[in-house]
Amino acid sequence: MAGAENVVGSRSQANRELRRFLLGLGRGAAGAMLFGIPMLMTMEFWALGFSMDRWRLLLMLLANIPMLILLADLIGFEHTTTWQQALRDATIAYGLGIAISGAILVMLGIIKADMSLSEILGKTAIQAIPASIGAMLGRSQLGGQDDDEEKDGEDGGAVPDHLSTHYVQELFLMAVGALFLNLNVAPTEEVILISYKMTPWHALAAILASIAIMHAFVYAVAFKGTHAIPEGIPWWHAFLRFTLPGYVIAMGISIYVLWTFGRLDDMAFTQMLMSAIVLSFPGSIGAASARLIL
């Protein structure tokens, strides 16, 4: 009799785990769509699918793998403790990103049967990057209250409500946030058009505004995840240690994304810098938001 109860018990346990897994998958799919749709419905992104340099596409697709693994380690589908679990979650997110991007592009009539394989793969591949980040964020951001409590209990271990975020992790999250907003904006022609319309004076204003907004987002405006500066510490400590490196990261990501999309080719240094400054404006907002949300 006791044996039979055990069997029933382990079966319901397995059922619960399957449900949890499917729930995570559903949230991932929702996240992939929520974060991916703006890019799936952007014309320049379709063109990039067949026009962009294949080596740069490959580099971005490969770079996405360690990024997803690190992201999974921080905020993945399930509470991850080992790198194998992080790897599994990253693979699921990437797979979801590819499947959902492909399906939506087919539904929208952007991928058709008579297109070349290179075009179909290129269009799906470039979309899979933001969609897979979205899938990863979906688990973190669309999760209910239950999960948060459970996460705190598990994550914190012995000291459940005191967890230390490593500095490098913080910078990494800023990079992800910047990348995400950059991907939204970078392929559009508006970025370079704005950089042509701006004078260097406009650019100076944009740099200062980006940095000020970044700092204000995290420390001044009282959002849910607002970071507090301990009493007696001057404001510029956090400014120097977090905001300025964050802006440099947003700038670096902007340059990388512009280069990947071939926006910097044959450009003079000042022009490159100008378009990077333009793109860093949304990038720095993304970086600051990532510190708050993730």
Binding site: D161, L171, P230, H237, L240, R241, P245
Partner: peptide, 25 residues
């Protein structure tokens, strides 16, 4: 960054790496 009571707060004694990164930035 220490998260206490779900409200992240910057540590009082950051390591030299943070200052070096900040200065470089």
């Amino acid at each position: 960054t220490n998260i206490i009571d779900n409200r992240p707060s910057e540590a009082d004694n950051p390591g030299w790496i943070e200052w070096a990164t900040g200065l470089l930035a």
